[in-house]
Design a protein around this nucleic acid. Structure first.
Lengths: 218, 218
DNA sequence: ACGCAAATACCCGGAATCGGGAATTACGTC
DNA sequence: GACGTAATTCCCGATTCCGGGTATTTGCGT
């Protein structure tokens, strides 16, 4: 004979939030695991230090939340990595990275992740963020670094920056873009003005430093 | 009843290596502390998440080894930070960073640190590295990223790269260097050839990406 | 349809860069 | 001192970039 109450309490235990930790720094991984297993409502169902291992575990355990570091040894780029894990519709993805460059954060958010948490956040906030993401609450965005600085760049402008960051000339960019080199020059001029920089080389430096250049061209 | 072995182990306990952990990611800090307190011959005498707090603790406890992360909220640059802690002659400095850019690693090593450990290293190696550094053994250098790639850049070449990475023109560089712009151009040409790149803008991109540009000019 | 703003394209003169060649100086080796 | 090598400097023609001006097209709201 089974009491209703017992069933309910058993149910609650089964409702633990299943978390998968993906992080290539073992020290950080250990700290995360320690902290999260202390939380009564969370359950760490697995840990991985590479993309391939993480994917395997994700399909095996179907965790509610995947805590995902952006720099894995076998991952090509942040964008592709994010998209790969976001395509697992059974799990929500919470990025956990030290990456503070607005350009990268933008790309990752647009890839469809459910939250972005900086590694410098205090431990208490991590568990809280996992709960938030699991319950579908507003995407956690560590600090508000995404719009803090830059006056919002359009997709075209970001594309232009990635090409510039690779050292291409106006001619080459114009060719790739089916447009006149003169137009490219005007766009660059406008971009320099918008970012309050001085000269093309400064723009190149800014673009590379901001993380364009390793962005898979849309 | 007490065995002789127990006494001996107590004596050795007094010789524990005192370690100070400096790391602004709380998760990593927790993982490090957990792991290192498990080691019988190590003692974590303090932890800090900022440069100022770390300096205070270092002077207070005079730890044998300081495990130092390079990215602290109140630090200006890797070079200055390293030099500051290296000037504490009572402690050896073991850098623990995710920084893999050869240029940065070179600068930090030249600042006089006793070892460089990547955050991606397995946990077991961290304790071992601390012991190595404490006993004055060969500076730990994670992987051999310092000379792995680049054909060793001279001090002059590095200086040139930092100026290029800031978007300066040949004229400006020549002026700062008391030399003709033509000379600068030839040096850049040689550098492009040495690094197997193509064009000045590619070199600028490479320089910025490699971490020049934020290097305090020698 | 109309007007306005933005994007695109073209032109010009001046400056800088590029690729190559050549002369001069500096320095270490024998 | 003689020699070879590397670094520095200057020169040339061709390409590209810069700053500014102007015209044409596109897109959008009224």
């Amino acid at each position: 004979m089974i009491k209703a109450g017992t069933v309910i309490s058993t149910d609650k235990k089964a409702e633990k939030i299943k978390v998968l930790l993906v992080e290539d720094h073992e020290a950080t991984l250990k700290g995360l695991k320690m902290q999260l297993t202390e939380e009564p409502d969370l359950e760490v169902v697995g840990t991985a230090t590479s993309k391939s291992a993480a994917l395997k575990l994700a399909q095996e355990h179907a965790p509610h939340v995947i805590l995902l570091d952006l720099h894995l040894p076998d991952s090509s780029g942040p964008k592709t990595l994010s998209e790969t894990f976001c395509s697992l519709k059974s799990s929500r993805v919470l990025v956990f990275s030290g990456e503070t460059r607005p350009a990268i954060m933008q790309i990752v958010m647009q890839a469809g992740v459910d939250g972005f948490l900086l590694k410098s956040e205090p431990l208490a906030k991590i568990a809280e963020a996992i709960r938030d993401v699991h319950h579908g609450r507003t995407p956690v965005i560590s600090a508000d670094l995404t719009r803090q600085n830059q006056p919002h760049l359009t997709s075209a402008e970001r594309h232009l920056l990635t090409l510039l960051a690779r050292g291409l000339k106006y001619q080459d960019i114009g060719a790739q873009r089916q447009t006149s080199p003169e137009t490219v020059r005007k766009q660059v001029e406008a971009l320099i003005d918008k970012l309050k920089l001085d000269g093309r080389e400064s723009l190149i430096a800014w673009a590379v430093d901001s993380g364009f250049g390793k962005l898979e061209s849309d």
